[in-house]
Computed example of a mutant assay.
Amino acid sequence: MIAIFSDTHRSRGHGLEGEALTAAREADVVIHAGDFTSATALEAFQDECEVLYAVHGNADSAAVRDRLPTARVVEAGGVRFAVTHRRDGGEMGRVMFGRSRDADVVVSGHSHRPTVVETEDCLLVNPGSHADPRGNRPGFAVLEEAVDGEHTTGETRLAGELRQPDGTLVESFEVTGTATADQTE
């Protein structure tokens, strides 16, 4: 399982609860699109995850920015994820960011609004904020190998869900990837 989070916005602790906490603990890979806010929150998140790939956001302290990149690429579950907190240019800016990294999925945060947008080039996923939704639904995302798994062309299909921390389903989606090995940049 791959779990995706963003916008923790904590001075202490990780703000994870319910199904969000379970997903962070049980995921093979956790991706976080930034704005932990404090090094204490980042460390609390790291303590819950077996493998965490994160970027820093605009609200992160200097201590967090020193430890995390602005953007990164993660290959997990046969899918290539390009991760950033925010990208100028709105949806098209995120598409261009993904295209330049040959990504199947662009993971971003910043808006605190859980959304999935399918484009011609890649899938745009914003998990929202599990801890500080700012008037939006609280959210996070999970992806697991689809029931039919591998396609004959070597592509892998993952079934994804945007969920609220209590496990309530917000939206289902699918992504097809062609990555061959789990790695990061």
Results as ranks from 00 to 15, higher is better:
Phe140Thr: 00
Phe140Asp: 08
Thr119Gln: 09
Val125Arg: 00
Glu150Val: 07
Val147Ala: 15
Gly149Gln: 14
Pro138Thr: 02
Phe140Leu: 06
Pro133Thr: 01
Gly139His: 04
Ala131Trp: 02
His130Asp: 04
Asp148Val: 14
Glu150Gly: 10
Cys122Thr: 08
Glu120Pro: 00
Asp121Ser: 02
Asn126Ser: 06
Ser129Phe: 08
Ala131Tyr: 04
Val142Leu: 08
Ala146Arg: 11
Pro138Asn: 07
Gly128Lys: 12
Glu145Arg: 14
Val125Thr: 09
Glu144Lys: 12
Gly135Ile: 08
Pro127Thr: 08
Pro138Gly: 00
Pro138Met: 06
Leu124Met: 06
Val142Gly: 05
Thr119Ala: 07
Asp121Phe: 07
Leu123Pro: 06
Glu145Pro: 08
Ala146Val: 09
Phe140Glu: 04
His151Gln: 08
Asp148Met: 14
Arg134Ser: 03
Gly139Cys: 07
Gly135Pro: 06
Glu120Val: 03
Ser129Thr: 05
Asp132Val: 12
Val147Phe: 12
Leu124Phe: 10
Ala146Asp: 15
Asp121Gly: 08
Arg134Asp: 08
Pro127Val: 07
Gly135Ala: 06
Pro127Gly: 09
Glu150Met: 13
Ser129Pro: 02
Leu123Asn: 05
Val142Trp: 11
Pro133His: 07
Arg137Gly: 08
Pro127Ala: 04
Gly135Tyr: 02
Val125Cys: 04
His130Arg: 10
Glu150Tyr: 08
Leu123Phe: 06
Arg137His: 11
Asp148Ile: 15
Glu145Trp: 07
Gly135Arg: 09
Val125Gly: 01
Asn126Glu: 10
His130Leu: 14
His151Trp: 02
Phe140Gly: 01
Glu145Asn: 05
Gly149Ala: 15
Ser129Arg: 04
Glu144Ala: 14
Asp148Glu: 15
Arg134Cys: 03
His130Lys: 10
Asn126Gly: 00
Pro133Ser: 03
Ala141Gly: 07
Ala146Lys: 10
Val147Ser: 13
Glu118Asn: 03
Pro138Lys: 09
Asp132His: 13
Ala131Asp: 11
Ala141Ile: 07
Leu143Val: 12
His130Ser: 15
Gly135Asp: 07
Glu145Lys: 12
Arg134Ile: 03
Ser129Gln: 01
Phe140Asn: 00
Leu124Cys: 04
His130Trp: 13
Pro127Ile: 08
His130Val: 12
Ala146Glu: 15
Leu123His: 04
Gly149Thr: 12
Leu124Arg: 04
Val147Gln: 13
Gly135Phe: 09
Glu120Cys: 05
Gly149Arg: 14
Ala131Glu: 01
Arg134Asn: 00
Cys122Arg: 06
Phe140Ala: 03
Arg137Pro: 10
Glu144Tyr: 05
Ala141Thr: 03
Asn126Arg: 00
Asp132Gln: 13
His151Tyr: 06
Phe140Pro: 01
Ala131Ile: 02
Val147Glu: 15
Gly128Phe: 14
Pro138Phe: 09
Glu144Arg: 15
Asn126Leu: 00
Glu118Phe: 05
Ala146Thr: 12
Arg134Tyr: 02
Glu120Met: 03
Ala131Thr: 04
Asn136Cys: 11
Ala141Lys: 08
Gly128Pro: 12
Arg137Thr: 09
His151Lys: 15
